[in-house]
Amino acid sequence: MCPVSASPSNVEIIRAHYAASAARDLDAMMANVSPQVRWTEMQGFPCAGTWIGPTAVVENVFSVLGRDWENYRFELQTLIDGGEQIVGVGSYHGVYRATGKAMQARVTHIWTLQDGVVVAFEQFTDTLLVRQAMTGTE
Rank of each mutant, 00 (worst) to 15 (best):
G116P: 08
D115S: 14
V118P: 08
T55I: 12
G94D: 01
T40W: 00
E12C: 12
A20P: 06
R24G: 07
W69S: 09
R67S: 15
L129R: 14
G136F: 00
H109D: 08
M134L: 07
T137G: 15
F62C: 03
V117Q: 12
V33A: 10
S21K: 13
G49I: 07
I14Y: 04
I86R: 05
A133R: 10
G136I: 00
I110E: 03
G100K: 13
F45D: 06
T50Y: 00
A19R: 11
L113C: 04
E75A: 13
T112R: 13
A56Q: 12
N10M: 05
A98F: 00
V118N: 06
Q85K: 15
C47V: 08
S63F: 05
R131Q: 14
Q36H: 14
T40H: 09
Q77D: 15
G88H: 04
G83K: 12
D25A: 11
F124L: 15
Q123C: 10
Q104L: 11
V119R: 03
Q85R: 15
G44N: 07
L129E: 14
H93F: 13
G116T: 07
W69H: 08
G83V: 11
R38Y: 00
H109K: 05
V130C: 08
D126F: 03
N10T: 07
G100C: 09
A16Q: 12
V87E: 04
G94R: 08
V11D: 06
I110D: 01
T125V: 14
S91P: 01
M134P: 09
D68G: 09
G116K: 04
E122C: 10
V57F: 02
V89T: 14
W111F: 12
E75Y: 03
V117R: 13
L65T: 14
F121E: 02
A48N: 03
Q104H: 13
M30A: 10
T55Y: 04
H93S: 05
I80Y: 08
G88A: 15
Q85W: 02
T78A: 13
G53N: 04
V58W: 00
V89G: 05
L129N: 13
T125Q: 09
A19S: 10
D115F: 07
P8F: 01
H17D: 04
A22F: 00
G116N: 06
T55W: 01
A56S: 12
L113P: 06
D68V: 08
R106V: 14
A22L: 08
I80W: 03
L128N: 13
F74W: 06
P8A: 07
V130D: 02
M42Y: 04
F45M: 11
G49H: 08
V37H: 05
M29H: 00
R38V: 01
S21R: 14
I14N: 09
A20G: 07
F124S: 15
V107F: 05
V33Y: 02
E12H: 11
L79W: 03
T108F: 03
G83P: 12
M134D: 01
E84Y: 02
